[in-house]
């Protein structure tokens, strides 16, 4: 059929060696059913790991803030003993909070990046692949978790270097990884959801910046809930970050915590986040 046009096209003169194209003639067999989701999640996570391998500067620059928190805030309040921590040094109490905070910042920023990817056509093209919206968002959510997890490792190492008595029990560390990923999944979906509502870069940046600090302060990351004013306690109770911090404290320090509740809330929050963000993703395609 195409032979008929050969004479007309100047560019078509060069012979095409069929062997060069062999594989490109056959469409791949589609994955179906439950296999789609893990495949897409892996694809998105691989992208994040590749990017991180090419450029590690973000890993280092993002380590500065948590280090300062631990070093200045942590050391100072350990000496002052102003905050009741149930018998452990304040810096130990603070470390899980800072791990959660740095993971949250990364996740929220990662969600914000989706607007850049939309504007750059990267997201647009992914939306035209056989990837259901929920699978795409899950992929993004877990990719942010992978990114946050690598950052968490850096913060844990810094904390350990500062003398925080952390567990090295592998099972508990695995739990830490799951907690960090679930929390990041929620927070990245939170900002994707906001992106789906406000639709423009500038507005999203403003809101993203406006919510991160309050989410951090209105949680048990810096101080125990018990010493908060009543209204802040309420906010802290509905803030998934509090449950993330509680779980991290329980796992890393062995302090009393509510692991079952924490995991339950984090899984639920991640599912709600993924569902909401997926349903709004179509608005970002328009």
């Amino acid at each position: 059929m195409s032979e008929a046009h050969d004479g007309r096209r100047p560019g078509s003169a060069d012979a095409v060696d069929p062997g060069r194209f062999e594989l490109l003639l056959v469409p791949p067999a589609p994955r179906t059913g439950w296999r789609v989701l893990p495949a897409r999640v892996i694809a998105m996570c691989v992208v994040e790991l590749q990017k991180l391998r090419h450029d590690r500067t973000e890993l280092y620059t993002r380590a500065i803030q948590p280090a300062l928190w631990l070093l200045i805030f942590g050391e100072t309040f350990t000496h002052i003993r102003a905050i009741p921590t149930g018998g452990i040094p304040y810096i130990d109490f603070l470390a899980p909070g800072i791990i959660a905070q740095s993971a949250m910042f990364i996740a929220i920023f990662y969600g914000i990046m989706i607007i850049w990817e939309r504007d750059a056509g990267i997201l647009t093209k992914l939306l035209v692949t056989p990837t259901p919206r929920a699978a795409l968002i899950s992929g993004k959510a877990f990719a942010s978790g992978v990114k946050a997890l690598i950052q968490a490792v850096v913060v844990i190492v810094i904390a350990a270097a500062l003398g925080v008595a952390l567990t090295w029990n592998p099972l508990k560390l695995l739990g830490v990884a799951v907690v960090v990923i679930l929390g990041s999944a929620f927070f990245s979906c939170l900002s994707i959801t906001i992106a789906g509502i406000v639709l423009t870069r500038d507005r999203l940046m403003g809101i993203g910046q406006a919510i991160t600090m309050p989410l951090f302060f209105a949680s048990n990351a810096l101080y125990p809930v018990a010493i908060m004013p009543g209204w802040l306690q309420v906010v802290s109770k509905i803030n998934p970050l509090s449950y993330q911090v509680d779980a991290l404290r329980g796992l890393l320090l062995g302090t009393p915590s509510h692991l079952l509740l924490d995991f339950g809330v984090l899984i639920f929050a991640a599912l709600v986040g993924i569902t909401t963000a997926s349903s709004l993703l179509g608005r970002l395609a328009r």
Binding site: P27, V46, Q50, K51, A120, P130
Partner: peptide, 20 residues
Amino acid sequence: SADAAMTGRENVTLFARVFD
């Protein structure tokens, strides 16, 4: 619409992955 933060090969591989 290529992802500037990846290599050409990685860009194409991503699409090979999402098309199974």
